[in-house]
Design a protein around this nucleic acid. Structure first.
Length: 915
DNA sequence: CCTGATGCGTC
DNA sequence: GTCGGAC
DNA sequence: GTCCGACGACGCATCAGG
């Protein structure tokens, strides 16, 4: 008989033909266009409709043999015929003639007539290779009409309860079947983007559906949303506050289906044959032998044998058994080294590092943290010192090193799961118990790994390899391999570094102090060297060799920028200057009583270095952004001097109001193709507003007063597109307030207030520069959802989604999130309240009874797709809990929209900067 | 091909 | 960017 | 005063998956 093999797909060696192989093959039959059946094969046999669908799902060149249903054809010397499989649109079975023998391969199939798939046909065959997803007697589906009635009833009841029904089904096939089922029920389906696209293709083939609309976050009310299963728990659905989700799948007959899928309901409408139809099909085809495939293949084969049919399962079970064996060994011997009493176990270097981290976390006293770290650093080799020091700033790469890892929460958890084979529910329990990736990693790895030694050098290689690996899958695999041989503590610290968050109450400031203490060098020198090199590891190394003086300010090595301290009012600012008593600076100041005011521009902070041969522009955290602004770099060559200027790059055009969001559109673009930037520059023209001068013709001006630096600045000849921010001297709080108002009328963010006698203090937010911003307005909103926080806010509901009222429908539409602004006590109180007023608990996230009114402040409001209101707030913060207000008195969507449109309708008044 | 999720950097 | 809290 | 941690929205790039 025809030889049949299985290796990630059915293979017929005599015909050299693959049937639905997983991987790319030279010659294959493709039964249908679901993506688990698609790979870049060279030459394929398929139906016409599958061909069309494939063009959309996997464009590209290949040789296609398109055969009509029911007609015998010859391809590469093989005689065969395609028969409709009834699974989805275009799905085919392959009927093969080999001498006087025949073989029927079903692919995915079903016998029940579907509304959006061709009806299945069959022929007698000697060999039947059959898909058996639902090969157990418990999978018997109720009559289709009955299931459809249930689905329609579910939708109607949900809508009547002012909620949104969401039906989950694959975007190709199932979704259209659902769509047909809703026909005539008086419901309006709304289709997720991927469903929409597939449905349009169906229509090209002449299939017609009832009226439907494409997904639009603002119009879900009253509609029936149809989404692929992957959309469940997605942000798209989470945004819909009152939704009831139903899974449409054959698996719905499992009693625990709603828990497994995390849905509110499940209906057994399937694209596959149920148990009864599988048995029936064998009777129809009357084969001499059967091979079963997928799902309960072994069970059905055994079942058929009991019924007197020769039947065998095609599968890869051996592979899985091997995997389980490996894990078992790891479990039994989690820490081999510790159980050998004869040799003292070699200490893992990375574990020593992690243990110091734990000790630092354990003490709240800063001086104690510094002492612990200093002692540790002193004992390291010159190879280890720069690396371990860097790790204590939770970085894998130095600040001046522009590499990134592209590894985040999602990849970390995937790797943890794969490394430990941990149970899904257990993983989620642990993850939600901590809300801290590092702590979760410890618990997940604990007892589930076979630790090996991990040196500091190994760790460096790990991070470099992670950086080099391309794509989330490759990165996850690399990480998984390492995690599986780390002790839990080491794994925890690897994760902490990956997330850039050590959470041990220690950051760069204290690391600098520890370096100073460890090597007995002045703290100021350490800070300065770190600032100049942007590499704390190298700074530690220089400190250990007493060579810190080697680092000095120079062109093309960016320095951290000076920051401003926020102030709420003009009076508060003035107090800072006039109220101080005892320094020379304030004495001099109160005599002259002068401060410098500048408009605060809403762009991105930039530091430009220019010499005769070269120009570079750096961002606030010292990244090179020269290539983002080629026209500025070009023009900067026209300066006459060698200089470093500090300023703000803003989106700017004479006759157009451009905002920060316009500017953002040309940030972060990568430079493949020069015309990309030509277009970007034309789209969003920019200007460089200069407000400081740090270097001029070979001399650092960092330690010259701002007054002097400004004087030098005034002497510069400026290329076009460069402007100097105007300075307005002020002598009282009233003048500051007045100038602030003027700045706002010029549509600038607010005001900068600077001490004219101050030096340029890189990287510090001192008492020499202040900023005055003030909120745009406040909104009274109601909290509709609350979320558990992270780290120390792990056990409180600290994150609130709040909504305005739609004055037409009465719905509460989310407009933003915030916790910032509340005290710990208030958060604790609200946590208690929300726990008792929860409508639906989704683990870390819960929808709550809308009865807490907050007053939120923000700096601007603009259209957005992030929230259902269609609006979002910039810099939202909570001003007060309005216990005096009830839900009925909160602000309306209408009012929020007015605020948004006001901001946009101002006549442009241009930045009054001197050219 | 398009959509959505994720990571990162800007504010 | 925002803010509150701890030292 | 200063640092630290726990958070917001947006846009671009990249990748996975339909």
């Amino acid at each position: 008989m025809i030889e049949v093999r299985y290796e990630r797909g059915v293979y017929l060696p005599e015909q050299d033909l693959w049937l639905d192989p997983w991987d790319a093959k030279p010659f294959a039959f493709i039964s249908h266009a679901h993506s688990d059946h698609i790979a870049p094969h060279e030459e394929i046999i398929l139906s016409e409709r599958t061909s069309r669908l494939l063009q959309h799902r996997m464009p590209g060149h290949r040789t296609e043999h398109v055969l009509p249903f029911g007609e015998k054809g010859t391809v590469d010397g093989l005689d065969l015929m395609l028969l409709p499989a009834g699974h989805i649109f275009g799905s085919a079975q392959c009927f093969l003639f080999a001498g006087d023998e025949t073989l029927l391969y079903t692919g995915d199939f079903k016998l029940r007539p579907g509304k959006s798939a061709e009806r299945a046909q069959w022929r007698h065959a000697d060999t039947l290779i059959m898909e058996t997803t639902f090969g157990l007697p418990r999978y018997r589906f109720p009559p289709t009409e009955q299931v459809i009635d249930q689905i329609v009833a579910f939708c109607r009841e949900t809508i009547e309860a002012a909620q949104v029904p969401v039906l989950l089904g694959y975007s190709l096939g199932k979704a259209q079947e659902i769509l047909c089922s809703l026909d005539g029920a008086g419901l309006t389906p709304m289709l997720h983007g991927s469903v929409y696209r597939m449905t349009r293709i169906y229509e090209q083939f002449g299939q017609s559906f009832c009226n439907y609309v494409r997904y639009n976050a603002n119009e879900v009310a009253g509609k029936v949303l149809i989404c692929p299963p992957s959309a469940n728990r997605s942000q798209m659905l989470e945004k819909i506050p009152h939704r009831r989700v139903a899974m449409i799948s054959g698996w719905a007959v499992d009693p625990n289906a709603i828990y497994r899928y995390g849905v509110d309901a499940a209906f057994p409408l399937s694209d596959h044959a149920d148990y009864d139809d599988l048995i029936r099909y064998v009777g129809l085809v009357r084969p001499r032998r059967v091979f079963t495939l997928h799902g309960f293949a072994a069970e059905l084969a055994s079942d058929l044998r009991m019924r007197g049919v020769e039947a065998w399962a095609l599968s890869e079970e051996n592979q899985m058994e091997l995997d389980l064996g490996g894990r078992d060994i790891a479990l039994r011997c989690p820490d081999g080294a510790a159980r050998r009493p004869y040799r003292s176990p070699p200490q893992s270097e990375f574990l020593a590092f992690a243990n110091i981290g734990e000790a630092i976390a354990a003490t709240p006293a800063k001086l104690e943290k510094i002492r612990l770290l200093a002692d540790y650093l002193r004992g390291l080799t010159s190879e280890q010192l720069p690396i371990a020091t860097l790790y204590f700033t939770a970085r894998a790469f130095a600040q001046s090193d522009l590499r990134t890892l592209q590894v985040g929460w999602a990849i970390i958890f995937r790797a943890l799961q794969a490394a430990t084979h941990i149970d899904d529910t257990e993983l989620h329990r642990i993850a939600s118990a901590h809300g801290d990736a590092g702590r979760s990693a410890f618990e997940i790895l604990d007892g589930r790994t076979a630790p090996q030694l991990f040196s500091i050098r190994d760790s460096r290689e790990l991070f470099e390899n992670l950086h080099r690996a391309r794509g989330p899958n490759a990165k996850a695999k690399l990480l998984q391999n390492r995690l599986s041989i780390l002790s839990p503590r080491e794994g925890e610290y690897v994760v902490k570094i990956l997330t850039g968050d050590l959470r041990i109450g220690l950051r760069e400031g204290l690391v600098e102090e520890a370096i100073a203490k460890a090597f007995d060098v002045p703290l100021e020198e350490v800070r300065e060297a770190n600032m100049l090199s942007g590499d704390i590891g190298q700074t530690a190394l220089l400190a250990s060799r007493k060579e810190l003086h080697r680092a000095e300010l120079s062109l093309f090595r960016p320095i951290k920028c000076m920051l401003a301290t926020p102030q709420p009012t003009a009076e508060a600012v003035w107090e800072r200057f006039a109220g101080a008593t005892d320094t020379d600076r304030t004495a001099a100041l109160s005599m002259r009583a002068t401060v410098y005011l500048e408009d605060k521009f809403d762009g991105i902070r930039a530091q430009l270095h220019r010499a005769a041969q070269r120009v570079e522009i750096f961002s606030r955290d010292l990244r090179r952004i020269t290539s983002q602004f080629p026209e500025l770099a070009d023009q900067a060559r026209n300066f006459q001097e060698e200089l470093i200027i500090d300023g703000e790059i803003i989106a700017f055009q004479e006759d157009r109001r451009l905002t920060f969001f316009d500017l953002q559109r040309r940030l972060g673009r990568t430079s493949d193709g020069t015309d990309l930037f030509a277009r970007a520059a034309a789209d969003v023209p920019v200007a460089f507003v200069i407000f400081d001068l740090l270097w001029l013709n070979g001399q650092s001006l960092v330690k010259t007063p701002l007054r002097e630096r400004r004087r030098h600045l005034d002497g510069l000849r400026l290329p076009s597109q460069f402007q100097i921010a105007r300075v307005i001297p002020a002598h009282s709080a009233a003048e500051i307030e007045q100038t602030f108002q003027q700045a706002r009328q010029r549509l600038n963010e607010g005001l900068m207030i600077k001490d004219p006698e101050s030096f340029y203090l890189p990287g510090t937010r001192g008492m020499f520069w202040f900023k005055l911003k003030k909120e745009l307005a406040t909104l009274d909103v109601v909290v509709v959802a609350a979320e558990l926080g992270h780290g120390k806010r792990n056990n409180v509901l600290s994150d609130y989604t709040f909504a305005v009222r739609d004055e037409v429908t009465g719905d509460f539409l989310p407009i933003g999130k915030a916790y910032s602004g509340l005290t710990d006590a208030e958060i604790a109180e609200l946590t208690e309240h929300f726990k008792q007023n929860t409508i639906a608990d989704h683990g870390r996230y819960r929808t709550v009874k809308p009865d807490v009114v907050l007053e939120v402040a923000f700096n601007s409001i603009q259209p957005s797709t992030r929230h259902a209101s269609g609006l979002a707030l910039r810099f939202p913060r909570i001003k007060a809990i309005r216990r005096d207000k009830n839900v009925d008195s909160i602000d309306t969507l209408q009012y929020a929209r007015e605020l948004a449109s006001q901001g946009a309708s101002y006549r442009p008044v241009l930045a009054e900067a001197r050219k």
